[in-house]
C-alpha cells in the first residue's frame, strides 16, 4: 500500500516528540503527558464501542477500576510490573466478558442504563469491601515495581523511566486498535452500528460481535487502569464512579466519534484544557460543560471531524 506522507510525517514527528518529552520537560510535564496517554487508551476502547459499534456504555469506569485495583493488589504482593499490568488487563477483560454477555442483549438507552448499574455495582463493591480494597481510603503505597523479564531487570521507580514503559504500551495498543478498526472485524462492527437488522441479514451474529467489542473496550479500560495504579501510587473508589465513565465519553465527543484519531485528540485536549482552566479558575466543569453543549449543538463531528470537513476531506474511509 502506498504511504500517505501527509499523515506519515506528522505521525513520525509526533511519536519522536513523545520520546523526547522527558528530555524537555520536568516531572510535571511527563506526568501530564502520561495522563493524556492513559485517557487515550481508555477512550479508544470506549469509542470502539460507541463510534464503531453504536453502543453507549456508562459503566466503563468499572473496568478501569478493576484493572487498577487488581494491578495494585498484585504489585503489593509481587513486585513485577508486567505481572501486575497483565493481571489487571485479564481481570478487566473477564469482568467485561461476564457483564457484557448480560448487557449486549439490550440496546439504546436500556444498554446504557444496564452498564451504568453494573459500573455502579463495581463502585459500591470497591467502596465497601474494605479488607481488600481499603474502602474509601483506597489502596496506598503501590510500588512502581521494576520491569522484570528473564535476564533483564529495569528499574522504573523514576517517573521518566516509567514514562517510557507507558509510552510503549500506549503505542502498541493504539497501533493494535488501528489494525482492528481497519480490518474485516472493524468493518463488521461498523455495519452493526449503522443497522443492526441489516447486519443480521447479511449473516452477522450481531450479539457475539457486540460482546467482542465490549470485551475489547473492557481490556483497554483495564490496561489504562492498570497503568494508572503505579503512576498515581494511590487509587480510590472514585475511579469506578459513573462520573469517571463520562471522561472517555467526553474525550471521544470532543475529538470526534467517527474518526479513528478522534478520541486520541480528544484525550489530549481534555487533559490539556483541564490543566489550563484549573490554573486560571476553579470552574473547570463549567468550561467543560459549555464545550460539550457547543459541540453537541454545532460540531457533532468533534474537533477532528469538523476540521476534516472544512479541509474537504471526508471523515469516512480515510484517517
Amino acid at each position: 500500500m502506498p504511504i500517505d506522507w501527509r499523515i506519515a510525517i506528522p505521525l513520525l514527528l509526533g511519536v519522536a516528540a513523545l520520546f523526547a518529552v522527558p528530555l524537555w520537560f520536568g516531572n510535571f510535564g511527563v506526568y501530564l503527558v502520561m495522563q493524556m496517554m492513559l485517557l487515550t487508551l481508555f477512550a479508544i476502547g470506549f469509542n470502539l464501542l460507541l463510534g464503531y459499534t453504536g453502543l453507549l456504555s456508562f459503566g466503563q469506569a468499572g473496568f478501569f477500576a478493576v484493572g487498577a485495583y487488581v494491578c495494585a493488589l498484585i504489585l503489593q504482593q509481587a513486585p513485577s510490573l508486567l505481572l501486575g499490568v497483565a493481571g489487571g488487563i485479564v481481570a478487566a477483560g473477564l469482568t467485561a466478558l461476564v457483564l457484557g454477555y448480560l448487557s449486549v442483549k439490550l440496546t439504546e438507552i436500556y444498554f446504557s442504563m444496564l452498564t451504568l448499574s453494573f459500573g455502579m455495582m463495581i463502585y459500591s463493591l470497591v467502596w465497601r469491601w474494605r479488607e481488600v480494597t481499603g474502602g474509601d481510603d483506597g489502596l496506598t503505597d503501590i510500588p512502581r515495581a521494576p520491569l522484570t523479564l528473564p535476564g533483564i531487570r529495569i528499574d522504573l521507580s523514576e517517573l521518566s523511566h516509567y514514562y517510557y514503559f507507558v509510552l510503549l504500551a500506549t503505542l502498541i495498543a493504539v497501533w493494535l486498535m488501528h489494525r482492528i478498526v481497519k480490518s474485516p472485524l472493524g468493518l463488521t462492527f461498523q455495519a452493526i452500528r449503522d443497522s443492526a437488522v441489516r447486519a443480521e441479514f447479511v449473516g452477522i451474529p450481531i450479539r457475539r460481535f457486540r460482546l467482542l467489542a465490549f470485551v475489547i473496550a473492557g481490556l483497554y479500560a483495564g490496561l489504562a487502569g492498570a497503568l494508572l495504579a503505579p503512576l498515581e501510587r494511590t487509587i480510590t473508589p472514585g475511579y469506578a464512579h459513573w462520573t469517571a465513565s463520562a471522561e472517555p465519553i467526553l474525550a471521544s465527543l470532543i475529538g470526534g466519534l467517527y474518526v479513528f484519531a478522534g478520541p486520541i485528540i480528544g484525550a489530549v485536549l481534555f487533559i490539556g484544557i483541564k490543566e489550563i482552566v484549573v490554573r486560571l479558575t476553579d470552574h473547570w466543569m463549567l468550561v467543560m460543560g459549555v464545550v460539550v453543549i457547543v459541540i453537541v449543538l454545532g460540531f457533532r463531528g468533534g474537533v477532528l471531524g469538523t476540521l476534516l470537513r472544512w479541509t474537504g476531506r471526508d471523515a469516512e474511509g480515510k484517517s
Binding site: L250, M285, L286, M288, G289, V290, V292, I293, V296
Partner: peptide, 9 residues
C-alpha cells in the same frame, strides 16, 4: 451528552 453537559454547568 448535552444533558450531561448541563450537569457540569
Amino acid at each position: 451528552l448535552l444533558t450531561y453537559g448541563l450537569v457540569l454547568v
